[in-house]
Design a protein around this nucleic acid. Sequence first.
DNA 1: AACCCAGTCAACCGCGAGGAC
DNA 2: AGTCCTCGCGGTTGACTGGGT
Length: 265
Amino acid sequence: MGRQPCCDKVGMKKGPWTAEEDRKLINFILTNGQCCWRAVPKLAGLLRCGKSCRLRWTNYLRPDLKRGLLSESEEQMVIDLHAALGNRWSKIAGHLPGRTDNEIKNHWNTHIKKKLKKMGIDPATHKPISISTDQEAPQLQQESAVSSGLSEADQNKGNEKSLQSAITSPLSSTDNSDSFCTDEVPLIEPHEILVHGPSSSTSYTSSSASSGMLDDKQFLSLEWPEYTTMSIWDDFNFWDSLIEDSDRKLVIDPSFNQFSRTLEI
DNA sequence: AACCCAGTCAACCGCGAGGAC
DNA sequence: AGTCCTCGCGGTTGACTGGGT
């Protein structure tokens, strides 16, 4: 029996997403939550396969995504995690809140690989490419290991274990109690996304929002605002605009995995 | 101005894991 | 136990962009 295609390719649209498609998908997910992806395009009125919808959402439309280049500390963390985990991008992404596996993978292939090679480090093994030809490499590698808290022995054996030491100093947290288990992909749990109101900082946390949880009664039905132009993120980040709006909170309904924008009463 | 080329990144493809039946 | 289905992952592709000539 042949493998079934992920979708009926006839009539399916491919290629870049249009603003209208984005709007439809966002609308649908905000209204219905993330359910069976296969059903999403049909229900949302999209001529896309479910896989494409899921990818678009997770890699681009999700509200908890950071945009822009990885910071130095994020980059260092990617290097450390890659040394421990290899090309397990989703695991690596799990330790970098707001970053996607695709984003990290791309960044690795386009920036970090080159950077490491320049430093005389083999990006695949994280070892010096050639000690005789590049005297800088050992020192640099040592620096890297020191900064990450990984000993060479750690790197050579028990990668999963050594990772623990690497990830207990995540950029995202000064409190180690919040560090992630390596086997867990700490995608932001719905109940964890919360934009604080005027009383707190404008930033939102993906690691611990317990102190800011809202009562269920505070959820109000969502009305997606009328952004009529192209990709609503292109000129400004819509979610940021929500965040910065001190009168509103952005939360996800924990029971339905459903986004709701709530008004602070 | 036109062309070429390398870099970047969004999106696609195919596979494996895991759950339901 | 076997089959089917869905989802998620990692590798790859290809469109787009900016710099160089």
